[in-house]
């Protein structure tokens, strides 16, 4: 492995909820690296710990032990202004339910992370236009979320996650609230951003279709990483990778009832 390209290192990460007899160990010492430009998928059954893992990286949860190092900095020690900076600049977060502020226009939503760090929409006009045309949302920039379709909303949310040019984009089931057509459109866009701009993306998903766009997938069960799938993008198509994912899910989990 080329350690020069490591963007994120997760070392012996564990997370325990509750105290005493009510202790539940959601993560049991997970270790893995994310390389720059990688499109990493995290899959696993409900309660396997995949969202806990993502939330720890996103600083929504504090790990019980272990380290999360982004570009050489241990993020578990961040608080106050440094934590806000990390959330606004270092990571971009894509939510399942979009989480757009419904009283702000698309443009205002997209520029919010920049505005929070003192950059005005005017200063970022070029970036906004480029992202909007890449994500095909130029026409809705001055509309409110209530005037957009679900797909448009999620693409606006993606633009918001990307506007501050974060080191890594964390996506929590981004296709969870979309129909298959919009899911495909979103994954195509994310994939082209990942390849075209070498943007690192880490995505938690249940959806094998969405996962087939990834370059690597970690399967988590009961707080451990128990399997890993890699894809050679040049040699393997998404549909072939999809077949492999489904097969692994069936073999390892005894069918979707267990894995999903």
């Amino acid at each position: 492995m080329n350690t020069q390209n490591q963007i994120l290192q997760v070392e012996s990460l564990s997370k325990i909820y509750g105290k005493g007899d009510n202790r539940t160990q959601a993560l049991k010492g997970i270790t893995f690296d994310v390389l720059e430009g990688e499109f990493l998928g995290i899959m696993g059954a409900s309660g396997s710990g995949k969202t806990t893992l993502l939330n720890c990286i996103a600083t929504m949860l504090k790990p019980t032990s272990g380290k999360i190092v982004l570009r050489g900095q241990d993020i578990s020690g961040f608080h106050g202004g440094k934590l806000a900076d990390y959330r606004g600049r270092e990571i971009g977060y894509l939510f399942q339910e979009f989480e757009l502020l419904d009283n702000l226009t698309a443009r205002e939503n997209i520029t919010l992370p920049l505005a929070l760090h003192g950059i005005t929409a005017k200063q970022a006009e070029g970036d906004i236009s480029a992202l909007a045309s890449m994500l095909d949302i130029t026409a809705v920039l001055d509309k409110f979320p209530s005037q957009m379709s679900g797909g448009q909303k999620q693409r606006v949310a993606a633009a918001r996650a990307l506007i501050s040019d974060p080191d890594i984009v964390l996506a929590d089931e981004p296709t969870g609230a979309l129909d298959s057509k919009n899911s495909k459109m979103l994954m195509d866009k994310l994939s082209s951003i990942n390849i075209g701009q070498n943007k690192t993306i880490m995505m938690v998903t249940h959806d094998a279709n969405a996962a087939s766009y990834c370059s690597r997938i970690l399967f988590i069960q009961d707080g451990y990483i128990f399997h890993e799938l890699r894809r050679n993008r040049q040699a393997e198509s998404t549909s072939a990778f999809y077949e492999r994912i489904v097969t692994v899910m069936a073999q390892l989990g005894g069918g979707s009832a267990n894995v999903l």
């Binding site: 502020l101 009283n103 702000l104 443009r107 205002e108 520029t111 919010l112 505005a115 929070l116 003192g118 950059i119 005005t120 929409a121 005017k122 006009e125 001055d142």
Partner: peptide, 21 residues
């Protein structure tokens, strides 16, 4: 707000939109 938001930083636009709403 539409006129002012391109030059607004921080939570100014959000604050104004909340009031407007």
């Amino acid at each position: 707000i539409r006129r002012k938001s391109p030059n607004a930083a921080g939570l100014k636009t959000f604050t104004a939109r909340q009031v407007q709403e």
